[in-house]
Design a protein around this nucleic acid. Structure first.
Lengths: 198, 198
DNA sequence: CGCGTGATTGAAACCCTTCAAGTTTAGTGG
DNA sequence: CCACTAAACTTGAAGGGTTTCAATCACGCG
């Protein structure tokens, strides 16, 4: 479980000196399971880096149903882009699924890092492009794949999360009901599907 | 219909001199309706800026069904991120819905522009964050909203496209069948819904 | 014209949800 | 460490939203 400083150096190739400059004075915090970093309607202009633990971002629709937008385990960034980049109230809740150690990145962090390091710029761009790619893939699955296909893709893409995240949250991420996912799993078991060994 | 040069200056605040440097030697092309800029499986490391016209990106699943990932009218960028940033074969087709004038941005364009201008860096980052936000919103709708709600959101978000894009493509974008969308529209008409006047 | 593509409509089928109940699991206090 | 409770997961039956397949209609373009 790398610290944010180590993460910066390893992923972006930024120098230890620059990493020290950038990470100096950053606030970190321990978020207990069930606690929130942001709520729908709040303004939350921090981006969060997860050093340990697991967070989720979700919306609550008019009928009170949760829709999970993103999971963020160790080494991931999670942020409410509406607040952080567009000064609008938050679209969703950010909540700890496990006790988590989190680094708070202020809105200007990205500008500072971009000004200092071409490596950072390049890496940051790649990370955003990759994020977009993943979202497009998820959209593609939601557009055409059955619940079973989406679940199989999930356990292939996030094998670690399959174990750590309660089933009803996976269902919410996939866009089906907990009962629906339960039936999908039953059917997979009947077809003698063994998770893990591809 | 702004040229790419004008777009750069207006959106990013980059100086005319820098804009001239960056856009010098860029290839542009006229793509006729129905022609492709990229196909599934190709490697296509250009990003395309649409000066005039309308493009779409879509996938083809195993059953031969199209799923539209993105529309790109004038002023929009469209790219196959797998190829452009990760040297992988393309995930989807990029096709002209109308005769279109497009600018070909080579893979290093972004690095050059980022090196020259802090304004560009800031704008580029905002654009990517905004793109992610839109994708997340679309995922949120796909996770929980009915076909009718998704269609209503579409005509609110892309009023111009509603007229320019054939209905079956909108259906594909929304993740429903053309017949399904036809029924949704019929039902909205029955409920005396007038598109346009909010 | 007339052909082809797009849009509509109907009936049957299907996937998934909803609701309600039961079962298992996990956490907590005695 | 067991007992108890709440939450998570499972299972069943009924229902709803969409799809599928097929036929029909509307329109633009050669």
């Amino acid at each position: 479980m790398p610290t944010f400083d180590q993460h910066l150096q390893e992923k972006t190739g930024i120098s230890p000196e620059n990493a020290a400059i950038l990470t100096e004075g950053l606030r970190t915090g321990l978020i207990k399971k069930g606690e929130f970093l942001s709520r729908q309607g709040d303004v939350c202009d921090y981006t969060f880096f997860v050093e340990t633990g697991l967070l989720r971002a979700y919306t609550l629709d008019e009928q009170g149903k949760e829709h999970i937008i993103q999971f963020a385990p160790e080494g991931w960034l999670i942020s409410d882009r509406s607040s952080a980049y567009f000064n609008e109230p938050s679209d969703f809740f950010i909540e700890a699924i496990e006790d988590s150690e989190v680094v708070f990145l202020d809105p200007a962090f990205n500008d500072r890092a971009s000004a200092i390091s071409t490596n950072y710029r390049h890496f940051n761009n790649l990370a955003l492009q990759n994020h977009i790619r993943h979202l497009q893939k998820r959209i593609n699955l939601l557009l055409g794949a059955t619940a079973e296909a989406r679940y199989l893709d999930f356990i292939k893409t996030y094998p670690d999360l399959t174990l750590r995240v309660p089933q009803w949250m996976i269902a919410s991420f996939l866009g089906i009901t907990p009962e629906g996912l339960s039936r999908v799993r039953k059917e997979l078991a009947r077809k003698n599907f063994k998770p893990g060994r591809s």
